[in-house]
Design a protein around this nucleic acid. Sequence first.
DNA 1: GTGAAAGCGCTAACAT
DNA 2: ATGTTAGCGCTTTCAC
Lengths: 335, 335
Amino acid sequence: MARLAGVSEATVSRVLNGVGPIKEQTRARVMEAAKALNYVPSALAQGFARKRSGNLGVILPLLPKVNLFSTHYFSELLSGIGMTASRYGYDLLLLFREPDEPREYERMFQAQKIDACLILGAQDVEPERHALAELAANGRQFCLVSQRFEGTGYNAVDADHREGVRAAVHHLLDRGFSRIWFLNGPSSYSNSADRLQGYCEALHERGVPFDPERVLLGNYSRTSGYRLSEEIEGLVRSGAADAIVAGSDRMAIGVLQGLKEKGLLAGIDYGLVGCDDSEGAKLTDPMLTSIAVPFYEMGSQAANQILSPLAQGETSSSFQLKLPVELIVRGSSAR
Amino acid sequence: MARLAGVSEATVSRVLNGVGPIKEQTRARVMEAAKALNYVPSALAQGFARKRSGNLGVILPLLPKVNLFSTHYFSELLSGIGMTASRYGYDLLLLFREPDEPREYERMFQAQKIDACLILGAQDVEPERHALAELAANGRQFCLVSQRFEGTGYNAVDADHREGVRAAVHHLLDRGFSRIWFLNGPSSYSNSADRLQGYCEALHERGVPFDPERVLLGNYSRTSGYRLSEEIEGLVRSGAADAIVAGSDRMAIGVLQGLKEKGLLAGIDYGLVGCDDSEGAKLTDPMLTSIAVPFYEMGSQAANQILSPLAQGETSSSFQLKLPVELIVRGSSAR
DNA sequence: GTGAAAGCGCTAACAT
DNA sequence: ATGTTAGCGCTTTCAC
């Protein structure tokens, strides 16, 4: 060890960790020795001694063949999380949640693999609720990203999907569309409920009665949108619908492609808006009007909220953030 | 500890690790106690004792605003790596490489944060070569994914890009295109050289002389393809080019969109093929003919090759895998 | 087949 | 301001 090089023992620890008072001279001597020996402390031993791993767990669903969420979603989120975590000296431990396996979040804490965790793509289903309750019961630090659980007070960072869809509907109404349908995703995602609420709210604000018949259900995939385009064609041709707001770009793109095959063009024959402003939104023809979500920022904030108290040894208070979204107008909602 | 519940001490360790001989009776007693106490061994202490972290490092470039690689690429790769790693009881430690920071790969080994690592998106530049040489010098287990370094013998898993582009060129020639240009990416990626070679090879096989003038240079982004579409328009209109093979779907899509704005349609006015068969390939109109790369499989194999010896305590031999790709024909190369 | 004991490399009281 | 010492929770010789 660097003890040979220097003269002391625990002092090395103090110097390297910047703890306690140290004479500038010895500090210099230690640093020098460390450099000379190219000394790198073992994070393993360190963690063991201070009972923390220095890892932030990131739990994410195993996307079998790309579904539900756009991959864009994950990579942006991960980058945001990673950048912020590294600022606090934390590393990311990636944990894939396999579809049917039990969710053993608590286990990772017990094993001391992670000091805290962020949960992406959670769903409001029983096993999930149970796993989260277990974490909460043990006082674990965790934060849900893009999903909230009513009546729990769990930490969460989300985007303001309600407001996004509200803006989208207003936009369509402003453009002269009046029979707007809403294509939503599964209700196990709180996002879905949020968007539906935004849809209703906007209609209400403009004096348009809400008609539950005008809500369709997909599963967030492009295929589900494509499949529904059959039904939607009829609606558009009969005049029952003149615009669609879809809960994801993927579904919107499915609709756009399906209707195009049937001779109906987005932005001309009907208005179309997606959600998430994924990369795909710029690839369709016409390009897709969509609601941009600050994924990077969400990841960054979630990591910050969780890590900042941990790093300072402070006790953390619960938080629920809702970040603003932005309507990006493109050709699919022209007229 | 479970020692109270059972009767022994080190025996618990033996039972839980399935090491050494143990009477079936005691084994049962220990297991029972473990279950009763809901005992989960500390991976931290375990790692400390046996000097290994149980983590597989995954190094990836911080994609600032999505570039070079499609995000599809990373999520597929990560899933493949994650699945395989979990089979070996390893967790993934994600390490973002910031653009200009020194690449401190070796440091993560010294700190014992990881036992081995996979490097994604490496480039053939000096700092990278240096960092890798350092790893090799210290006998670290690592594997490059989607990048090779000539004359080094480093472990690598790659796709057969040469063969992919070769197939693409043959396909275009078969379809009656004859003045095929190639839009390549930066030469710091071995992929780029591979693809160029496939391009030359195919032309050669069909008796078409290779003309270096017909090679354009982009940076793998959609924008770079879009920008080049200006030049390409001229080539197509003058008859100097009637088809393009691009080194990435992103560049191909940029070209497709740019030329469409100028009134030239892929699959009608010219042939177009991309690489990677990303999600975007199915979103353009016409859809993009592309070369499918088995990213998931590549990740899975890389993890397997690295982890399998580690887990068995065997010594590992070096490997260079090249997985097959598949040409997916769609509208952009019709005629 | 199972205990006993040493020790992995560091941190954190406690002394000085 | 710095040295001493006792572990952190496991694995692993080495005896029995």
